[in-house]
Design a binder for these strands. Sequence first.
DNA 1: TTTTATAATGATAACGATTATCAATATAAA
DNA 2: TTTATATTGATAATCGTTATCATTATAAAA
Lengths: 142, 142
Amino acid sequence: MLNEFDIFKDFLHQQKLRWTPQRKMILDVFLSFDGHVQIESLHEKMQAQDPSLGIATLYRTLKLLVDCGLVEAHSFQNGRKTYERTFHVRHHDHLICTRCETTIEFEHPLIEKYQLEICEQYGFSLKSHKMELLGICRNCRK
Amino acid sequence: MLNEFDIFKDFLHQQKLRWTPQRKMILDVFLSFDGHVQIESLHEKMQAQDPSLGIATLYRTLKLLVDCGLVEAHSFQNGRKTYERTFHVRHHDHLICTRCETTIEFEHPLIEKYQLEICEQYGFSLKSHKMELLGICRNCRK
DNA sequence: TTTTATAATGATAACGATTATCAATATAAA
DNA sequence: TTTATATTGATAATCGTTATCATTATAAAA
Ligand SMILES: [Mn+2]
Ligand SMILES: [Mn+2]
Ligand SMILES: [Zn+2]
Ligand SMILES: [Zn+2]
């Protein structure tokens, strides 16, 4: 049973790239978080474990993880990206509260189906999609 | 019958802001474009009409136009924003070709309906949404 | 029509997240 | 081992957008 580390290793090998202690540690740290993570949090935790690790390597590795399909990058609100694991995680879209920045995850099979229909209609080959519903969450409405 | 200029003027007045020749010209130039416009195009056309007009004012005015609801700002691909008029233009979402950056506009009433249902379910007050389908367009697939 | 309070302007410096650069080092295949 | 080349960390650069600030323009009030 393949886990994320094996998948990443295979990907690197296929691309003639190399498996390094830095990449291992970054994947390790990334997986220790749940949900949406920001570079800043990853960097802090990394620094705690090994202060010699540079932030450029963190950015580079995250990009590789996205390329190999283990991670999804979101550009929600404030210009900062967030990262989310996708391996053994169901696809979903997001409700985003513009007041407290909380996100709620949801999925709707019919919306996904209609998206495909629309693409067919225009001869479009769908690779991915982004759907964000922006508003005020239950808590913030009180 | 109100047009964009009247609406903008009213908005400014409500907010105790001022109607200036620069704001008039920027709205004028903006409306002379169809579809999605980038700052760069607006700036070029502005410079042609009046080279003394500064780019800071362009950014500031676009932001006001978004605030008053006449314009929608998109952050599609490369970090650059595009602007689109919304007055007397039906709401729609976008198919975006990641190869040639062409966009196709579409609307799907049921998708919109399900979005509302999801929000109700989570006690969420929906303000706006963003839905982008990314892939390869018919032309680029050939 | 002045006066007056304050909003707007243009030039340009600053911002800030991400990328590029580069010399030193590490990896892995031969 | 050797060797080709990928990777690293430090840091400079990028670039669209904002903030700053002194000067000027607007519009309501007098
Ligand atoms: Mn999520
Ligand atoms: Mn559009
Ligand atoms: Zn909230
Ligand atoms: Zn295309």
